[in-house]
């Protein structure tokens, strides 16, 4: 379970998050919707400890994120996998090295075992045999899938998705949505996805939260979100549908 309690975060004079409260149940996929620049990615980075909140706290499995203890923070991150907006693959490494990097640096697995795990994860995301390609040789959709394989490599308890379909054509976006949905059913990891893509949100989310002006203004299932009369949610859905 991930519990976000009263999180506030400002950058200079600009307050991005003004008291966010949200609970993500074990095995649940929570999608956080919001306009571009509303602080969704900031919230994700606060959850994984890449940024420190000005006030409030995040509990992961009941334990507060140890923002001020780098050693504990690095250990806590071992429970997480994260898919970045632009995949954030390392250009100098091959696909296989990218996927296996966390295993190589954080586990005592030998090279053969790492290679086996890398092949298995690449097979899971439909990129069997791509381990010797360089990121520069991949399309946008393939990069996202490699990023997904890398996020899954350590068999994480928690997975964070930052704009999983941004920059992809609708067909490839749909493929990624289906892949994420399948992986959620298969691994049952507690997940948070942030997106401004309403179609993606409805496809992959168990519940949907809307972040607006630094606060969560709506939380509900997909059906509840579609039926709500909350003007901000309606505006968002209509804007997207139109």
């Amino acid at each position: 379970m991930i519990e976000i309690k009263g999180i506030e975060k400002s950058f200079g004079d600009h307050q991005v998050l003004a008291g966010v409260d949200l609970t993500v149940g074990t095995g649940e996929t929570m999608v956080i919707l919001g306009r571009s620049g509303c602080g969704k990615s900031v919230l994700l980075k606060l959850v994984i400890g890449l940024l420190k909140p000005d006030s409030g706290q995040v509990l992961v499995g009941g334990e507060p994120v140890p923002y001020d203890r780098p050693g504990d923070l690095f250990r806590m991150r071992g429970k997480f996998g994260m898919l970045f907006q632009a995949a954030a693959l390392f250009d100098s490494l091959t696909v296989g090295e990218n996927v296996g990097l966390g295993l190589k640096e954080n586990t005592s697995l030998n090279a053969g075992e790492i290679s086996r795990r890398v092949k298995e994860k690449l097979l899971t995301v439909g990129l069997d045999g791509a381990e010797f390609l360089k990121p520069a040789e991949l399309s946008g959709g393939m990069k996202k899938r490699v990023g997904l394989a890398r996020a899954l490599a350590m068999d994480p308890e928690y997975i964070l998705y930052d704009e999983p379909t941004t920059g992809l054509d609708p067909v490839m976006g749909g493929v990624i949505n289906e892949l994420i949905r399948d992986l959620q059913h298969k691994f049952r990891a507690t997940s948070i996805a942030v997106t401004h893509d309403i179609h993606s949100a409805f496809r992959i989310g168990d519940r949907i939260a809307l972040l607006h002006e630094g606060r969560i203004v709506h939380v509900g299932t997909v059906a509840e979100t579609k039926a709500t009369r909350n003007p901000v949610v309606e505006e968002f859905i209509e804007g997207q549908s139109g």
Binding site: K45, I48, L50, F74, R75, R77, G78, F80, G81, M82, F84, A88, L89, F90, L101, G102, E105, N106, R150, M154
Partner: peptide, 8 residues
């Protein structure tokens, strides 16, 4: 950020 999330 990706390095940090992998504990590196």
């Amino acid at each position: 950020d990706a390095l940090k999330t992998m504990g590196i």
